[in-house]
Nucleic acid binder design. Structure first.
Length: 463
RNA sequence: UCCUCGGUAGCUCAAUGGUAGAGCAUUCGGCUGUUAACCGAAGGGUUGCUGGUUCGAGUCCAGCCCGGGGAGCCA
């Protein structure tokens, strides 16, 4: 007898109709009467459940109808057309094998739970509709990222997770050490003696693979990283996590315009891929999580992202007549309220804001000819905020070194980075995409903790 | 870290300073095509913790703990 995945049934049930098949999975719900019952079975391969019909001719009928939700069973029988309106077919089972019954204290009920509660049972929440949909989309989106870049001949580079220095001042870092914290070795000056540590040097978890990946762009031309990133910031918001994934493409012989085009194309590709490969899940999000989701994604697919300079944004905000809590002034970074006003009130679509003042951006960004701004871009989207941040890099050796000295950065730590500007430098550019923020945007989920299987945030490292 | 809202049964939520409740889940019973099935019954509570005000506190006050949202920082 053929073991069939429920996904196969939904995609091609004609091939199985009136045939004997075997399925296996977890019970989502059982509706029973005196002499017959319906079981909704989910086998993990598909968002929808298979309805199984049983009657009391089944040897273990009375035992089966008493099973609790999430019990694991194997069912054998004939796939038949269903008289019920809500499903085209169902399994008329003549044998149910109980693999593992779920005990009666199983915490998930058939009605809805709050996301807050589900976070406390992160090991069980993938069995719910919402999280099943979220994490299938997350999987598809990861694959789509690779597919997008591989189709364009980008080389995937594994940049290090453990690093020796604060790569770009991107944030507070997690320290990596094997030193005995109860007996920390000190040098003559009383500082921690890292020569006795594992690497004979202080070490941290990466906050970005950008500097390393730039060196590979100088060899392979177009490259990308896609991996975990760590920030030890004490930020407690629905958009921040201590461990998250980032996609960082880098292109040689490319400028700001090129990476804006690339990231716009990438976002659209991601959306299209998920719509094509998880239509049931996307439908579910649209119906239960975010009513305007599909219309919004459709709008994104069919429009060009707006591009506007920082200076124009400041002008626009100042002339808007809108009351902002924080003053709008050239030289200050845009506040969340400003970004929201732009994306949600004015443009209602993703926008690139470009050419920020150099003093509010990172040292490696290319200085524009006005000497005041750098060739940077942020992609802002309604509801989520900044989803992509990128720039054309400062490829001029003297210019880069001068900027590093201005910021009192230890030149000797960056000798290898500076070398790229000595040996065949060229204009190049790249960006970072916050993968979880992209998932939030794709699904309509509003908390980053609900798009990471086991989220790590300040004070939380359960599971 | 700051601001703000909240914490009542396993879950989702009610309860004017005066006997702590419902739906779902659980257990038991009923029901011949259900669709978060339905009908009946039962069990289930130190109302986050500590202290205070009061004849009387789930409700008012203070401190603490935990959670949500907003801000900062960023992706």
């Amino acid at each position: 007898m053929e073991q069939v995945a429920i996904k196969q049934l939904f995609h091609n049930h004609e091939a199985y109709i009136n045939k004997e098949i075997r399925v296996s999975g977890w019970v989502r719900t059982i509706r029973d009467s005196k002499s017959f019952a319906f079981i909704e079975l989910n086998d993990g391969t598909f968002f929808k459940n298979l309805q199984i019909v049983i009657d009391d001719s089944l040897a273990n009928f009375s035992e089966v109808v008493k099973l609790n939700i999430s019990s694991a069973i194997i069912a054998e029988g004939k796939l038949v057309e269903s008289p019920g309106a809500k499903q085209p077919f169902e399994l008329k089972a003549d044998k149910i094998i109980i693999e593992g019954a779920a005990s009666s204290d199983y915490p998930l009920q058939k009605k809805r739970h709050s996301f807050e509660y589900l976070r406390t049972i992160a090991h069980l929440r993938p069995r719910t509709n919402t999280f099943s949909a979220v994490f299938r989309v997350r999987s598809l989106a990861s694959f789509a990222i690779h597919k997008f870049f591989q189709e364009r001949n980008f080389v995937y580079v594994h940049t290090p997770i453990v690093t020796s220095s604060d790569a770009e001042g991107a944030g507070e870092m997690f320290r990596v050490t094997t030193l005995d914290l109860d007996r920390i070795p000190r040098d003559a000056d009383g500082n921690v003696d890292f020569t006795q540590d594992f690497f004979k040097h202080d070490a941290n978890l990466t906050v970005s693979g950008q500097l390393q990946v730039e060196t590979y762009a100088m060899a392979f031309r177009n490259v990308y990283t896609f991996g975990p990133t760590f920030r030890a910031e004490n930020s407690n918001t629905p958009r921040h996590a201590a461990e998250f994934w980032m996609v960082e493409p880098e292109m040689a012989f490319a400028d700001l315009e090129d990476i804006m085009n690339l990231s716009e194309e990438m976002i659209k590709y991601l959306i299209q891929y998920c719509l094509d490969h998880a239509p049931e899940e996307m439908e579910f999000f649209n119906k239960f999580i975010d009513k305007g989701l599909l219309a919004r994604l459709d709008n994104v697919l069919n429009s060009d992202f707006k591009r506007i300079t920082y200076t124009e944004v400041i002008d626009l905000l100042q002339k808007s007549g809108e009351k902002f809590q924080y003053p709008v002034e050239w030289g200050h970074d845009l506040q969340t309220e400003h970004e929201r006003y732009l994306t949600e009130k004015v443009f209602k679509q993703p926008i690139f804001v470009t050419n920020y003042p150099k003093d509010i951006k990172a040292f490696y960004m290319r200085l524009n000819y006005d000497q005041k701004t750098v060739a940077a871009m942020d992609l802002l989207v309604p509801g989520v905020g900044e989803i992509v941040g990128g720039s054309q890099r400062e490829e001029r050796y003297d210019q880069l070194l001068a900027r590093m000295k201005e910021l009192n950065m230890p030149e000797e730590d960056y000798w290898w980075y500076l070398d790229t500007r000595k040996y065949g430098t060229n204009k190049h550019a790249g960006y970072g995409l916050g993968f979880e923020r992209a998932i939030m945007y794709l699904t309509g989920m509003t908390n980053i903790r609900d798009v990471i299987p086991f989220p790590r945030t300040v004070g939380h490292i359960d599971f």
